[in-house]
Amino acid sequence: MVEVGTSRVKRGMAEMQKGGVIMDVVNAEQAKIAEEAGAVAVMALERVPADIRAAGGVARMADPTVIEEVMNAVSIPVMAKARIGHYVEAKVLEALGVDYIDESEVLTPADDKFHINKKEFTVPFVCGARDLGEALRRIAEGASMIRTKGEAGTGNIVEAVKHMRNVMGQIRKVQNMSEDELVAEAKNLGCPYELLLEVKRLGRLPVVNFAAGGVATPADAALMMHLGADGVFVGSGIFKSENPAKYARAIVEATTHYTDYKLIAELSKGLGAPMKGIELSTLAESERLAVRGW
């Protein structure tokens, strides 16, 4: 029997992205630069997060024209973002044929209580998480891939590091718990007991876990791999830098060879200015994207 949209097929797609870099692009030209640099996928957007931040107002799903332009430009997978809880935006993206949907806090949430029921979809979803409980709630809703939320569009890695350390530290804690302690921990974390049991058995999340939100340099990407990320999303970091093609290649190579520090030194030479970046303490609480969703 031929089955589409099984959890193995959806999660498997993310497994194929491991060790790779997924890049935000806003048109066909950028998509081709990303593919040429060795990106494993591109995220088709109308604006990169730094520009979404600058523009303010309500950020929504991209114009399908942009998404189709990118899909026609490259042979690698194309992802696109839907607002948290916006079932119809997600259905539209699925109908367009995108390969992965990011139910993303970078866009303005459409639902302040509920995320999309992702199990209903044939196309797989990636969702952001700040800790293990949030990651497992998204997986319970059908997410096939998790990424840190970080703080998108800041070029500041500190929040992504915090979220990755949270998830990894909580996994290590769960591995040392007895099954009765796990029931209480499931209550503490606000996640299903069965998923927590699976985490204990596997010693990792049951899906791929990428880093996202603030990666700006090759060393940032390598740091996230060192902390246990399976791969890296780079949003504003590439096309807000001085030399995007060179930056993109350097980040791809630093992600693959993340323990080769001599190489990362070479890759970091003469890259030109990275994106300027924002110190987190200067961001008002209302300007923080990571607190969107629950």
């Binding site: 029997m1 031929v2 089955e3 589409v4 949209g5 099984t6 193995r8 097929v9 498997g12 797609m13 042979s75 997978p77 699925e94 044929g97 995108v98 390969d99 992965y100 044939t122 196309v123 797989p124």
Partner: peptide
């Protein structure tokens, strides 16, 4: 031929 069964939503498993 690459991606010859379609995009991700057409990905499948079978015996």
């Amino acid at each position: 031929a690459r991606n010859s069964f379609g995009r991700q939503k057409d990905s499948f498993e079978t015996d």
